[in-house]
Nucleic acid binder design. Structure first.
Lengths: 335, 335
DNA sequence: CTGTTAGCGCGTTCAC
DNA sequence: GTGAACGCGCTAACAG
């Protein structure tokens, strides 16, 4: 295997000094004839400049670390998409790692990415702990800013959708649709945004003013199967509607209901949160509170970029959701 | 902003030479008392060694470049997941970029990642062109091996699922289920694997021996909406079954059929390729030929790792699919 | 425009 | 065990 060709080698080949080569590479002033000789040498050797040496000077890598709980989810995909685009626009690349929904792993991921030379980090966290805050602060001192996505905390820079507002939105809608007994299928309360805010927001507006309204809470995991398997438990509550903390959960419920020959929405209504594309093609199409995760991702990237250029940035806690009314929820007329 | 703390600073603080610090960091022999002083200095300053300087010597970055056509797809998510895990196992990280389904962008992505210092590259390509081969060869010379995923070509190292075999598998199945007129909803033939192989494999076994069998081909884009919008065109062929080149396409068709009040599978059967999880919870659950993309991703990573350690590796063209028989396809009895 | 001279931060011989 | 000195490949400052 031939030794790696360096700027020195091509300087020798082109019979110029290496700084001239460097200048050529960086669009500095170089005479045409020498530029020509240099280019020929480059072509001949297949030279490509050493990224590390360059960065050793530059102090910047152009790499942004990204930590996500998982990738095989519509939400994660959209977020990543939004980030990637925003980063590419300014010539940055994403250094990716998955935390596998593990909060402790997140810490390791962040340290890891920092060690790797990431200029900054965007982390889609499942929950911001004291350890997260301490690490983020530490990284900031090392001039590696961190932006949290999906969860909030006053001590860090973050961006998240308005989960509580989304909950309220759907709570209000379900109330207006005349439902009085709903089963809320949610996730662990360790996840403040998804597990708590959506539920609390929902309950607040759903139960407001109507004394008959009752919400039965069923906790489950993330993923289709998790809710699907809880089908019987959920139905035992005899709800007129099932509201799920994520669309994925709703898909599982839809399946469980179909299997039992229960008509949706005639017998039981179903709604979710997320606005996954698949919701448009389920049967029936799913009514959901949607978030524009791609935009969230893009904005998260922009916030980090600002942080990198030492501009002040404000966290955003209320990226607005919107209701997508399809046909999985029916209006119940009062008798 | 305090200047970045270097190994030099630590050395001064601990009153030792920087080489002693370096040795300490790399588990070399250092006396306990000095080790102690060094550790204290590190803790006090929050020192962390400069990745670039280290790599400048090491010649390895521990970063693997990954190019994908898109991320917001179940397939992409699974692949990435498989790769991430396999890479993390050996302490590597993923440097990620999206080609946005653009073959030319893929080339740029690869060069980009190489420039960034990736030790190797895994690319999920939409089609291997001469330019791809040339670039891969060039990169190989620069000691940056490349593994292609999803498409095949004798001149590169690749891994792909057996699309042709998957097509045959489904063709055989549909024939055995008594169907004679199917609409095949496919994608551009520029995509050899998805656009050509799956279709050709299907047609080969579906039409084998039975002169009555006819396959109408409808080309569409990727994505749910693409097929959904072709609903009328597809139905105009009056098929007894609709076979889609991807499950996503099938979901769109399912929706189009529901909307028209056409019963699946009683009136029209539907099948897809991919084995997306969502297929289990559609109504009816989708019969599909599934691929274990997570395993494919993991194996792709392992192949690259082998390449990096200069071991020979053979391309794999026939990662086996398996049929998941659910209820969207009905058997048609001969009259 | 060009070549010479210094580092960037770290690992690694070497002598001591 | 330890420290001085050199070099990784490149960019930036300076004279010329």
């Amino acid at each position: 295997m031939e030794r790696k060709v360096t700027i020195q080698d091509i300087a020798a080949l082109a019979e110029v000094s290496k700084s001239t080569v460097s200048r050529y590479l960086n669009k500095g002033y170089v005479s045409v004839e020498k530029a020509d000789r240099i280019q020929k040498a480059i072509d001949a050797t297949g030279f490509s400049s050493n990224a590390f040496a360059r960065r050793l000077k530059a102090k910047k890598s152009g790499m942004i670390g990204i930590v996500m709980p998982r990738v095989d989810s519509p939400t994660g995909g959209k977020l990543l998409r939004g980030m990637s685009f925003a980063l590419e626009e300014v010539g940055c690349r994403a250094l990716f790692e998955s935390s596998c929904l593990d909060g402790n792993r997140e810490l390791q991921n962040m340290e890891n990415l920092a060690q790797c030379g990431a200029d900054g980090i965007i982390i889609v966290s499942v929950g911001i702990t004291e350890a997260h805050i301490a690490l983020a602060e530490d990284l900031r001192k090392r001039e590696i800013p961190v932006v949290f996505v999906g969860q909030k905390h006053p001590k860090v820079t973050y961006i998240k959708v308005d989960d509580f507002g989304a909950g309220r939105m759907l709570g209000d809608y379900m109330r207006r649709m005349g439902h009085e007994r709903v089963a809320f299928v949610g996730v662990t309360e360790k996840d403040q945004a998804v597990g708590v805010d959506r539920k609390d927001g929902f309950i607040e507006l759903f139960t407001r003013g109507s004394r008959g309204a009752v919400v039965d809470f069923i906790e489950t995991g993330f993923g289709l199967e998790a809710s699907y398997e809880k089908g019987s438990e959920i139905l035992a509550h005899r709800p007129t509607a099932v509201v799920c903390a994520t669309d994925g959960l709703a898909f599982g419920i839809l399946r469980a209901l179909h299997e039992r020959g229960i008509d949706v929405p005639e017998e039981v209504s179903v709604a979710g949160f997320g606005g996954y594309e698949m919701g448009a093609v389920t049967y029936p199409p799913l009514t959901t509170v949607a978030f524009d995760y791609e935009k969230v991702g893009a904005q998260a990237a922009k916030m980090l970029l600002k942080l990198l250029s030492e501009e002040p940035v404000a966290s955003v806690a209320d990226f607005p959701p919107h209701l997508i009314e399809r046909s999985s929820v029916i209006k119940i007329e009062k008798e």
